[in-house]
Each structure stands twice: as structure tokens, then as C-alpha cells.
Design a protein around this nucleic acid. Sequence first.
DNA 1: GTCTATACCGCGATAGAC
DNA 2: GTCTATCGCGGTATAGAC
Lengths: 194, 194
Amino acid sequence: MGQTREALIEATKHLLAEDGYGSTSPRDILARSGAGQGSLYHHFRGKSDLAAAALHEVSAEMRTAVDDRLDAAADPVVAVLDWLQAPRDALRGCRLGRLAAEPAIGEAVIAAPIAAYFHHVQGRLAARLGEAAAAGRLTDGMDPGEVAASLVAVVQGGYVLARATDDPAAMRRAQAGAAALLRACCRPVEGDNR
Amino acid sequence: MGQTREALIEATKHLLAEDGYGSTSPRDILARSGAGQGSLYHHFRGKSDLAAAALHEVSAEMRTAVDDRLDAAADPVVAVLDWLQAPRDALRGCRLGRLAAEPAIGEAVIAAPIAAYFHHVQGRLAARLGEAAAAGRLTDGMDPGEVAASLVAVVQGGYVLARATDDPAAMRRAQAGAAALLRACCRPVEGDNR
DNA sequence: GTCTATACCGCGATAGAC
DNA sequence: GTCTATCGCGGTATAGAC
């Protein structure tokens, strides 16, 4: 059965989230998963192959989470603000974004699931911002794709600031500032002052 | 003389910018600086002590660069937009911000110069945005500190997106989106449509 | 203050018995 | 498929001559 294989992937997901790629060793993974030495190299070609499998799952989970948030509200502006201001574990960092700073991002198998996530979020945000624009609720000349990119960047940058200053509030300030900027250029819906 | 010491610091600055902390080894530093083995441990207590010295210099350089940009224009909104949209080497990452994702950020000597930089940029941006607010040129209720945090986050997140998707244009889109949002909530100056 | 030599450890991977 | 044992390498640091 694939029990050992799944245990390896599960352990890798946790360790990548905690420590990143470079600082997660096969030894750590084996210890945490309870698997023996040979198992890793029986099921996977090596560390990066296993990491790719783990990141593939994380990427899928996070895309689903984004879709759920962005589809929850009928009003596109409300949905986008909701996604932007969702609480985040700032000091731990983004499970995918934090790997962008590592040399391993140069390996295609590692980069692919991470890039897939970012393309997905930006596309979904741009779509909802496009709805708002089509309804004439966005300031003229505003590009939904560019605004989407800046909002995703705010969140990723919020993680960087929070970790760099060891202060989770840095993330919340970045979120609040971006939300204020966005609200200022969106015609609001009656009765919603989120 | 401090020639060897400075050569070590200079080499470390370059290697940290290229590869980050974890992937920069004392061997690399010695090879690049041309110094012999013992020198590193004569002048510094170890790798992290040397890295701290290098980051201290980088932090000071970057704070100066920010000040120069933010003081160049008399108009605060123009100055902030100018800083935001400055060209950046997106695929290489921020020399300080990229270290935030590494475990080494947990060491106080490493974190201190990085945090000092981010506090400085946010403070300077907030000050100029405060000028704009005082002149009644910022949408009401906008917090200069929060907007500053979000702008710094956009830049740091732009690096993350660019590296994650292996696309330098991702940084430019994030910058452009944030600039559009900021312009939309700032009363412009006559004749400047930057 | 700088050099050469070397120690110790953990990383990533492999060998081969069961 | 899983285990134990082991390998080769490079990371970080130290010893001690000059």
C-alpha cells in the first residue's frame, strides 16, 4: 500500500512549512514519518522529487482555499477585501512563497507547483476585480491584473516584513493599508462598510 | 591593517546577495575574498558574526538610497511614487528581505540590521505620506503608517512573485497596480501625471 | 595576522540483506 | 517494500606553525 509514501509526503509538507527546503533533510523527514532509510529512495528519486510531490499537494490545497474565499461573497469587491484581510500566520510565512527566496526555486520541479499557485490566485483575483470594473465600480483606467498582482504582493510582502521585524502586526498593517487603498478606489455597496 | 577584514566583508556582501545566508559557506567566502582559512576566525567569531557585519553595511547603504530617493522630490506624493516605481532587480531578490525566509532570521545579530532597514523605510514613507495627508491630499481616514507598510510589502512581495514565477514582469505589475491604487486616492499636483 | 592541515559532523544517496 | 549499514562530500570550526 501507499501508506509509507503518504507518510513521507505528509511529513515533508509539515517540515517544508516549518523550516523551508534547504533546512529540511531526508533524515528529518524519515524521523518524522517513522519510515526507514531506504523507503524514501524506494518511493522517490530523491529529496527534490519528494518535495515536489508535497508541494503539489500544498499548492492544490491553497488554490482550493482561495477559490472558497473568493466565491463566498456575491459582491466582487467584498470578496476581494475578504481574501485580502483573511488572518494569516505571519511569523511562519507562506508555505509556498517562502520557498521563493531559496536556491531550490531554480529547480523546475520545485518551482512549478509554487508558480501554479501564484498564477491561480492572481487570475482569480483579476477575474473578480474585472467584474467590479465591468460594473463601473473601479476607478477608471485601473488594470484588474495589475491590481491583483499588487494585492498578492502585499500579502507575500507582509510575511516578509513580519518575519524580518519579528512582529506579526506588520502583516496586519500591510493588509489594512492595502484594504484602505482598494476601498478608496471602489464604489461601495450600500450598507457594507467592510 | 583591516584589509583582509574588509575583503571578507565585501565578499560576504556579494555572496549573501547572490545565494542567501544558508547557501553561503565560509569556504566560498574565503575563496572569493582571497583570504586564508584562519583569517575568518581571527577577525570574526564565526560565519554569523561576519554575516552580521556585512548586513550592517548593506542595511546602511540601502537606508541611504531610500533617503536619497524620498528626498529628491519636493512633492511628497511624487517622491513616494518615485520610490515605489524605481526599477528593481526582481529575480535576484532584495538583499535584505530575502533573508527573512531563512532560519537564520531567528539569530538576533542577523535580524537586527534587516529589521533596522524595514523600520527605516516604513518610517520615511509614512513621514512623506503624512505630509500629503496634512496638505489634505490623501483620502480621508487613510493611515500613513499603514499605507507605508503596504507599499513596502508590495515591493517585497514583488520580489517573491518574480522569483516564484521566474518572471521579472511580475514585479513591475505589482508596482504598477500599487501605483494606480495610490494615485487614485491622492489629489494630484497640477501638470504631473506620473 | 596569516597560512596549511585537519577535525567533526550532518547531508544526500546507495548497497544489499530480509 | 522495508530495514540496517555505510559511503563520499562539503559545511563550520579549530590547531598550531610561521
